Amino acid sequence: MNYRRIIPNLCTASNLFFGMCSMLATLHHDFFWGSVFILLALVADGLDGRTARFFGVASEFGKEMDSLCDLGSFGVAPALLAYEFCLHAHGALGAAVAIFFALCGMWRLTRFNVNASVVHGYFMGLAIPAGGNIVAMTTLLFTQLGVDPAVFGVSYPLLMAIVAYLMVSHLHYPNFKGDGGDKLYAAAKVLAALMFLAILYAGRAALVPAVFVAIFSTYAAFGIVNSLFLLFCKAKRIEP
C-alpha cells in the first residue's frame, strides 16, 4: 500500500465530511455552521490537490473522487442550505432554484473533467467551490447581521439562479495558475475593487463573513465584466 496516498485522500474525504456536516447542521436549522462547514470543505478541497502533487501521487482516481465530493459539498449542500434558509418561502420557485443549482453544479464538474485536457489558462464558467461559497457566505452574513432574506423578495432566488447559470456558462474566469489565459482588463479590475469595497461597507457590522462574500461575489462579477471587455475588443479587431 502506498501510504503517500493517504494524506491527499483524507483531504478529499474531509471535503465531503464537511459537506455532510453542513447538510446535517442545515437540517437542524443551524445556518451558522451550515455555512461555515461549506467554507471548511473549500479548505479541504484546496489541500487535496496540493498534497497529491507534493507527494507525487496525483491520479485519475483522486480526480474522480474530488469531483464527487465537490458535488456534495458545493452543489447539494449549498442548495439545501439556501432552501432551508430562504427558498422554501417561495414555494415551487424556491424548490426549482435549489434543484437547478445542484444540477448546474453537476454539469459544471462533468464539463470540467471532460475539457481538462483542452481548456488551459482559465476556468470555463464559475468554479463550483466559488458558486457554493457565494451561497454559504451570503447566508452566513445575513445570519450574523440578523437580516431576513424575505425582504429581498424574488431577488434572492433570482440571484441564486444567476450564480447557478454562471457555473455552466462559457464565461472565462482566471485560474491564477500563471499558465497564460485571457487578458485581465484594468477597467474590470477597478469595477471589481469598487464592488469589493461596497460589500465590505454594507457588511461592516459582520466583517469576517463580509470579506468572504466580497471575495467570492467579486470574483463572480469580475468574470462577467472581463469577458464582456474581451468580447468587445475581439469584435473591434475583426471589424472591416
Rank of each mutant, 00 (worst) to 15 (best):
I6E: 02
C11G: 01
F17Y: 10
F18C: 13
G19S: 11
M20S: 12
C21V: 08
S22V: 06
A25Q: 04
H29R: 15
F32A: 09
S35T: 05
F37V: 06
I38Y: 01
I38S: 04
L40T: 06
L42I: 09
L47A: 12
G49N: 08
A52H: 03
F54A: 13
A58P: 00
S59K: 04
S59P: 00
E60L: 12
E64L: 12
S67Q: 11
L71R: 09
L71H: 09
G72I: 12
S73Q: 06
G75E: 04
P78M: 11
L81N: 05
A82L: 10
C86S: 15
C86W: 08
A89K: 15
H90T: 06
G91M: 06
G91F: 02
A92W: 10
L93R: 09
A95V: 06
A96I: 08
A98W: 00
A98E: 00
A98T: 05
A98S: 11
C104P: 01
C104N: 06
G105E: 01
L109M: 07
F112R: 07
V114L: 14
N115T: 13
H120L: 14
M124R: 15
G125S: 07
L126Y: 03
A127E: 10
I128V: 15
P129D: 05
A130I: 15
T143A: 04
L145F: 02
L145G: 03
L145Q: 13
A150P: 00
G153V: 08
V154I: 13
P157M: 08
L159R: 05
I162V: 15
Y165P: 01
L166C: 07
S169A: 09
S169D: 03
H172N: 10
Y173H: 08
P174R: 05
D179Q: 14
G181H: 02
L184R: 14
A186Q: 10
L197T: 12
Y201D: 01
V211E: 00
A214D: 07
F216G: 02
T218R: 02
T218F: 00
Y219C: 03
A221T: 11
A221M: 14
F222S: 05
G223Y: 00
L231P: 00
F232T: 11
K234L: 13
K234E: 10
A235C: 02
K236S: 13
R237E: 13
